[in-house]
Amino acid sequence: MLDISVIIPVYNAAEFLEKSVISALQFEEVKEVILVEDKSTDDSLEICKRITKEHSRVKLFQHPDQENHGAAASRNLGIEKAVGSFITFLDADDYYLPNRFDAEKTIFNDSKIDGVFNAVGIEYLTEKGKQEFQSKFSDNTLTTVNYPAEGKEVFRGLLGFTPKTFGTFFHLNALTIKKAALEKHSLKFNKVLRVHQDSDFIIKLAYHCYLKSGIIDQAVAMRGIHDDNRITKIIRYSPQYNQRQYLFWNSLYEWSKPLPLEPDYAQHIYLQKKAFELSSKKGFSKMTSLLAAVLKNPNILRTKYRFTYSH
């Protein structure tokens, strides 16, 4: 039987936290639920303490200085403290469905499989949150990939190098990974990234580890969409958006430099990084830098770089 550590970063999630924890405790495969409380300003810490008293499988940790360090650092601390052979993640405002580990029970019988990913559904908790989400991501009810895949096909798909559109993302809530695989490749979340640290982690994971799709046509977990979802607050191609995209692609670029990536993959990562780096410049400096970049590699014009904002 699988022995799983579920890691839940907790920040201002008092309204949702207990439902999240209970959804993980329903599975006998779950050896422990690790709550990493990140200096919330609401009642989250008190709720964490109460839940740990009521449920022996729930463990509570805070950062050594008891300060706020973000979701990436909180997940890293959870991985460090985990004792299960398998690691899963769950956001504190989300929850697992009863089929959460159905695919894993059979797929992990193949010893070469390091990780399994599935589909995540969406639950709208507020009307404002629904409108903000749909204005940016349409009314897609599943966060998933478009077809089954495993091994290097997952990495290629996430970078957009497959003949069919694979999909750019699968959600951490539906990922199960062997802890030994994370340790073998020293894989952690990038603490510099306050957003996109999940996408950054997943792409690196797909390169180093053998991942396989599980249930991708129906949800195994649900995301709660409400007024305070950070990802919906960012205006696309605004200075804030471009800066966060730059940090994300620069993280992948720095990671990829010493690796034997295929030239097309390495160039794609570099050009995305360079495009969003240019987007932060203004005026004459921006135009001269862009011209120099185009002369060096015209393919930069095929990236998602935009001439809007911060001219």
Rank of each mutant, 00 (worst) to 15 (best):
S135N: 15
A275N: 05
E18Y: 08
I122A: 07
H69P: 05
I113G: 02
P64G: 11
H55G: 09
L175G: 12
N99K: 11
D217S: 14
N12A: 02
L182V: 03
A82H: 00
L35V: 07
S256D: 03
N118I: 01
V21K: 05
E132Q: 15
N250V: 02
Y305Q: 02
S74H: 11
G115S: 10
I225C: 11
I216D: 04
I113C: 10
P258A: 00
T144H: 03
G151S: 13
E37Q: 14
Y309H: 14
T176F: 05
K184Q: 15
I113V: 15
E153N: 14
Q245Y: 14
S40Q: 08
Q62L: 07
Y270H: 14
Q62G: 09
F86Q: 04
I87N: 09
G157Y: 01
S238W: 06
E32I: 02
A119N: 10
P263Q: 10
N146H: 11
T162K: 01
E254S: 08
L97E: 07
Y95G: 06
E46P: 03
Q243W: 08
I47G: 10
S56E: 14
S279I: 00
L205F: 10
A181V: 12
H171Y: 03
H226Y: 14
I107D: 07
L278V: 09
L158F: 15
N242Y: 12
A174F: 07
Y246V: 01
K53Y: 00
A103W: 05
E277R: 09
F86D: 03
D227A: 08
T303K: 04
F27S: 09
C48R: 06
T176Q: 10
K188A: 05
F89Y: 13
H208M: 07
I216L: 09
A73V: 06
K212C: 07
M1V: 11
K128Q: 11
S289F: 06
H69M: 05
K179N: 04
Y270S: 08
T288Q: 11
K188S: 11
H196Q: 12
K19S: 14
R230H: 11
L25H: 06
K105M: 11
I7V: 14
Y265H: 13
